[in-house]
Write a protein that binds this DNA or RNA. Sequence first.
DNA 1: CTGCTGACGGTAT
DNA 2: AATACCGCCAGCA
Length: 121
Amino acid sequence: MSEPGASFAERVYAVVRRVPYGRVTTYGDVASAIGTRRAARRVGWALSLLEGERAERIPWHRVINAQGMISLRDDPVRGPLQRHKLQAEGVAFDPAGRCDLGRLRCLPEELLDPSSHGAEP
DNA sequence: CTGCTGACGGTAT
DNA sequence: AATACCGCCAGCA
């Protein structure tokens, strides 16, 4: 999994699938987990490709920005959907629209594949 | 070909 | 707190 040969998007999906129910992670953390720390933006790009059945299989809604907020605020469909999905998992949002990252954040270390433990070329 | 944008993030001003 | 830049790179006009 998450092999160098796999496309960037595939590596993103492999990592996002590891985010536990009721927890969240950030675009940057996902980027770090696949070895490209500063590619947070591309992580968002990869997730934007998800649709249909693929989108239902991958917990894309557990990926939020580093401020603990949903980055789809301007999306009239996916924004509210992401929030709804998270709330359904017990994730709470404060009046400002932020959730408790300190408590729910899934760090890169937890997202790393056991097989890729350590080595990072 | 160039330039801008974007489900981001960190640093600087 | 609010901007402004920079890094990263696939699309697209």
